[in-house]
C-alpha cells in the first residue's frame, strides 16, 4: 500500500495540520517508508493470535466513584485566550 498526495492532504486536513505542497511530497515519502515497514510486519502469519491492544500485559486499574476534584476554574481560565461568564470562548462553531 502506498499513499498519494491526495491521501496526504486529506490526512493533514483531518488532523488540522496545514502543509505546503513541498511538505506534502516529503511527508508522503516518509509515510510510505513507514508503510513499507508495516508491510513487512503484515507478512508474519498471525493466525490464532489475539490482537494486542496494549504493549504491556496488565489490565486497567479502576478508581472508586468519588468526587476528588475541586473547582480550579479561575486558575484554568487565567491561561485561556478568552473567557466570558465562566465560558471558554472559541471561534464560532457552526453545525
Amino acid at each position: 500500500m502506498s499513499l498519494s498526495l491526495d491521501d496526504v492532504s486529506r490526512i493533514a486536513r483531518l488532523a488540522r495540520i496545514e502543509i505546503s505542497p513541498a511538505e506534502a511530497e516529503r511527508t508522503r515519502d516518509q509515510l510510505n517508508g513507514i508503510l513499507s515497514f508495516v508491510e513487512q510486519l503484515q507478512a508474519v502469519n498471525t493466525d490464532g493470535i489475539a490482537p494486542l491492544a496494549h504493549a504491556v500485559d496488565v489490565v486497567q486499574r479502576l478508581r472508586p466513584d468519588a468526587v476528588t476534584e475541586s473547582d480550579h476554574r479561575a486558575a484554568f481560565q487565567a491561561i485561556a485566550p478568552e473567557t466570558e461568564a465562566g465560558l471558554y470562548l472559541v471561534p464560532k462553531v457552526i453545525e
Binding site: E82, E84, K92
Partner: peptide
Amino acid sequence: LHEDFHGKTGID
C-alpha cells in the same frame, strides 16, 4: 453555547 459572544462560541 451559540448565543452572542461577539461572534464566538462559548464552551462549558
